[in-house]
Simulated scan of single mutants.
Amino acid sequence: MSVERLVKRYGQALVLDHVSLSVAEREVVALIGPSGSGKSTLVRCIHQLVPIEGGAVYVHGELQGFERTDGGLRALGHRAIAAQRQRIGMVFQQFNLFPHMSVLRNVMEGPVQVLGESPEQARAYAEQLLDRVGLLAKKNAYPRQLSGGQQQRVAIARALAMRPQAMLFDEPTSALDPELVGEVLAVVRDLAKQGMTMIIVTHEINFAREVADRIVFMEAGRIVEQGPARETLAAPKTERLRTFLSRGERS
């Protein structure tokens, strides 16, 4: 997975300023940085949730969102973009579960409606995933009956049900009470141990140090510093990252 000189604007504001980043298969990259640095926008661009103004995104070498023609690049249609998007799972700050569906139905819905799996096949895999995130006993419950941490774990299972090649996490614990953060991070930690390729936008520095292979520090729409997680967080090379980490430790 890679982005090359990615540019994104919202009105006159330049949110991503020619950002380039490559993520190897099975690698876990944590994006950190102050609010407004472009972290969430970057993963949303990778997932084609927002259009880009310049640059390119590749997944397994395939250009995302466009096709090359004799006349240059042509934007793909909605159906082709949806097919590309299926290969990458995404978990948001908000859980976005279907409130009128049970936990099991929430996880089954995508495989049945999008992938064309039989209900029996989708149910069996959904139950495996719910067991994996520790919620099989809640399969018949509805989202309103779950804690925030439980809802986020269902959201992760739902993303995994589409059998993605990689996962994107956009501040998966920011909407949770502090005592619920650990149960979600444990699921992400398990995914990392099993070799899932991941980009994780997070403000949990200790978690990033533990689970990520590489830290990428962003500010003002640019990558300021990156390197091996433990080494970079222990001995940052730039003054900006040193300042960011010291403020985080005091807060």
Rank of each mutant, 00 (worst) to 15 (best):
242 R>F: 09
100 H>C: 13
92 F>K: 13
26 R>V: 00
180 L>I: 03
78 H>D: 15
200 I>D: 05
84 Q>A: 09
236 P>F: 14
233 L>Y: 12
72 G>Y: 11
76 L>Q: 06
225 E>C: 11
3 V>W: 00
1 M>H: 14
142 Y>T: 11
234 A>Y: 13
110 G>I: 04
22 S>E: 14
100 H>Q: 15
11 G>I: 09
39 K>S: 07
138 K>C: 11
201 V>E: 02
23 V>Q: 14
179 E>A: 01
66 F>R: 08
127 E>N: 12
161 A>W: 06
171 E>H: 02
166 A>V: 07
247 R>T: 01
198 M>H: 02
173 T>Y: 01
203 H>L: 03
162 M>D: 10
32 I>H: 05
230 R>C: 12
92 F>D: 08
238 T>S: 14
210 E>W: 09
144 R>H: 15
118 S>T: 15
115 L>I: 07
137 A>F: 05
172 P>L: 06
196 M>I: 00
93 Q>A: 09
63 L>N: 14
46 I>C: 01
135 L>Y: 06
115 L>W: 05
61 G>T: 10
84 Q>D: 10
68 R>K: 15
191 L>T: 03
208 A>V: 05
88 I>Y: 03
241 L>K: 00
192 A>L: 07
11 G>L: 08
113 Q>A: 15
54 G>D: 04
34 P>V: 09
249 E>P: 02
39 K>I: 11
241 L>V: 02
195 G>L: 08
169 F>S: 01
222 R>H: 01
36 G>H: 10
24 A>P: 01
19 V>L: 08
75 A>G: 06
146 L>K: 00
59 V>E: 13
2 S>V: 00
148 G>S: 08
235 A>G: 06
165 Q>M: 10
85 R>A: 12
150 Q>F: 09
220 A>H: 09
206 N>Q: 12
20 S>L: 00
128 Q>I: 01
187 V>E: 05
52 I>R: 10
172 P>I: 04
17 D>I: 08
94 Q>H: 15
66 F>C: 10
87 R>V: 09
117 E>Y: 07
139 K>C: 07
4 E>C: 00
137 A>I: 00
98 F>S: 12
241 L>M: 02
131 D>P: 00
176 L>A: 01
200 I>A: 05
50 V>H: 05
12 Q>P: 02
155 A>H: 08
63 L>K: 13
116 G>Q: 12
180 L>S: 07
63 L>V: 14
125 Y>K: 13
234 A>S: 15
227 G>I: 08
201 V>R: 01
218 M>D: 13
114 V>S: 13
42 L>K: 05
37 S>P: 14
208 A>K: 05
93 Q>F: 07
194 Q>T: 09
211 V>T: 13
23 V>S: 14
66 F>L: 12
84 Q>Y: 06
1 M>L: 15
176 L>V: 05
184 V>S: 03
115 L>Q: 15
84 Q>M: 07
146 L>P: 04
14 L>H: 13
